[in-house]
Every structure is written in structure tokens, then in C-alpha cells.
Amino acid sequence: MNQPLSAPPRFASPDAKKIEPAGFGIRFLANIIDGIILGVMTLPISLVFGRFQNKAHPSIKLTILSNLILLILAGFYYAYFYSKKGASPGKSMLNLRVVDFNTGTNPSFQTAFIRDTIGKLLSAVVLMGGYVIVLFRSDKRAMHDLISDTQVIRLK
């Protein structure tokens, strides 16, 4: 009907919301925040395990068991937040999102769970090499990102 005289107003100007891969430093910071929150949430379990542990001669079995349980709980924490909200509390505070590398949607629960248990374990096993490669890749993906086919991005 009424042709506008000038170009129609843009709702999302190209510069308004830039998406770019998140770097090493900011992801490290987000992980510290998440670590604090997870530490508080798993404190009762840690205390129980500490109660059973022999302080003078700590048993290796109990150490492995307790770490495994804490790792799985952390996996559930991350998987819930990544699949439901696209970011854990720490990441959300710094405007980071975890997305599927192909479609840009939130990763599924299983993908996020594998990313943060098996993936992070494998990244950490050789001198944190899986984390360090973030510094050298142009798409800033760590090894756990490559394994689960995700990417961490930063909204601006």
C-alpha cells in the first residue's frame, strides 16, 4: 500500500549483535565462577567423603570414586544448563553461549553431558593440552568441543 520513502528501519543492524568465538581468558573466568557454584553445591558430598577418608594414609580407591561421582554430578549440572538455557550460570554472566557447531541451537542433554565428563577428562589428561589448543585455533574450540561437535561463542 504505502511505499516507504526511505529504506525500512532495520531491527537488527549487522553491528548490533555480533557473534564471535569466545577466547581462552574469558572462558577460564567463566569456569572459575562455575567451579565456585559447583563447589558449594557438592560441598555436603565432599564432606561425607572426607569423613570416610583416612587422613594419614589416603586410599586411592576412595579418591578415585569420590572424584568420579563429583565429575558425574558436574556433568549433570552442565548438561542441564547447556541444554535448557544454552549457558551455565558462569558463562551466562559473561555473555557466553554453548551452541551446536552445525546448527547453532543449544546442544542436547547427552551431547553436553559427554562434553563435560569424557571430553574434559580427555582434554585434561595430557598436560591440559586439550584446553591449550584454544589459543592456537581460529574457531577457538577446545578438544572437548571437537569431540562433542560444539562451539563456545560470545555475544556482543
Binding site: F11, A12, P14, T105
Partner: peptide
Amino acid sequence: DFSLDPQDKFLFVAELFRQKSI
């Protein structure tokens, strides 16, 4: 009476599909 830029249309469709899949 609502004019929409073609590029915005594309962004809207992309976001719509994303929301649906979530």
C-alpha cells in the same frame, strides 16, 4: 503497514527455527 528489511526476514526465520528446535 509494517515494512521489514529482507535481511531482517532472514534473521527472523533463522531465530524462529532455532526457537522451535529448542
